[in-house]
Computed example of a mutant assay.
Amino acid sequence: MSIARSSASVAQICGELYVFGGRIDSEWYNTVESYNPTDNKWILRPSLSGQPRGSLAGARLENKIFAIGGENGSEFFSGVEMLDLDLGRWIMTQSMLEKRFTHAAAELNGAIYVVGGCDGKHCLKSAERFDPREHSWTRIQSMTTKRSCPALTVMNEKLYVLGGFDGKEMVPSVEIYDPRNGSWMTGPAMNIPRGFSAAAVVKESMYVIGGVIDGVTMTDTVERYRENSGWEVIYRGSIACRCFASAIVL
């Protein structure tokens, strides 16, 4: 990328990866750049219209990218911006019901789901759903565990919330949300507690990458989940530890 970023978010649209917001040390960004794998280049894109911020979440919905919530070190946001490629700029849209940072978001069946995070005072177990047909956020059933800095993926039309910080420690637990019955269930726990990790699904496998395991120590381990065989650690090495990072499949 053109600049180093932690606590940024990513989304994929039109075959390109967009990364937006984030920070380096005490400097917060509202800049956006996209990566095109065909020509292996990063391109600067229109900046977020609101304040520079990081620890935000991102998702794609109906050929638009949404930048959701976040913080700037002193303020915490519920606001949501939408990148309209036809207009070529970010515009403010409907805010969430709660302020959230270090939360996670994903699209499932034409709606955006946001889970966990912090509101500036407390870790959250609440979750929200944005329906573009109604252009509004509604609460869905809360998770059983408070989770800031979790990872969130979609597999087999269910949401998987992975790890995070419960207000006391990093946890390895997993919760699964099925929108057909509107409820959470406990999933198989990861082998390693972690938060601020990255996660993605490739075919029938879910991968969780790096993160922080005890609030201080980073890990470079990668775990893979398959429904029939559970979690297994598939990589331990010394190439690089990463946390406050994102992953996406192109």
Rank of each mutant, 00 (worst) to 15 (best):
Y113R: 05
V19D: 01
R23G: 10
A104K: 02
S47M: 03
S148Q: 10
Y29I: 10
Y35P: 07
M96I: 09
S34P: 01
F20R: 04
E27I: 15
T38Y: 12
E107M: 05
Y35T: 11
N40L: 15
A105K: 09
G163L: 01
R147F: 01
K64A: 11
G79Y: 11
V114Y: 05
S78V: 00
G70H: 09
A105Q: 03
T145P: 03
T153G: 02
G117V: 07
N40T: 15
N109V: 06
A67G: 05
A67K: 04
A151R: 07
G88Q: 03
L124C: 09
G21S: 07
N72E: 08
T102E: 11
E71T: 12
A151V: 00
V80C: 09
S34K: 15
Y160V: 07
I140T: 07
S26H: 13
W28Q: 10
L44N: 00
V154S: 02
I91C: 14
G163W: 02
M92W: 13
G110T: 13
E134A: 13
V19A: 15
G117F: 05
A105I: 08
Y160K: 03
G116D: 02
N30P: 05
G50R: 07
F20G: 02
L162K: 03
G50P: 07
P46I: 07
S34N: 13
R100K: 11
G167L: 03
E71S: 14
V161A: 01
R129T: 10
I43C: 01
E71V: 04
F130S: 06
K64F: 04
G22N: 12
A57P: 01
Y113L: 06
L61E: 05
C149I: 00
K99D: 04
A105G: 10
S126V: 05
K64S: 11
R133F: 13
M82H: 01
G69A: 03
I65Q: 08
S34D: 09
L97G: 01
G79R: 13
L152T: 00
N109R: 14
D39P: 01
M82V: 15
G88C: 03
L61I: 08
F20H: 05
G117C: 08
S47C: 08
T145H: 11
A127F: 06
K121R: 13
K125A: 11
D84R: 08
H103C: 15
Q141R: 12
E27S: 14
E157F: 04
F130Q: 08
G70W: 08
G58K: 02
G120C: 06
R133G: 10
G116A: 07
G54E: 05
E71L: 10
V115N: 03
G116I: 05
G70K: 02
S74C: 11
F20Y: 12
S126H: 02
S26Y: 13
V80Q: 03
L87V: 09
E107C: 02
V114I: 11
R89L: 12
W42Y: 11
C118Q: 14
H135T: 13
R23W: 07
F165H: 11
T138K: 14
S55G: 12
L48T: 06
P150Q: 01
I43T: 13
N40I: 14
Q141L: 11
D166S: 09
D86T: 14
L108W: 09
I24E: 15
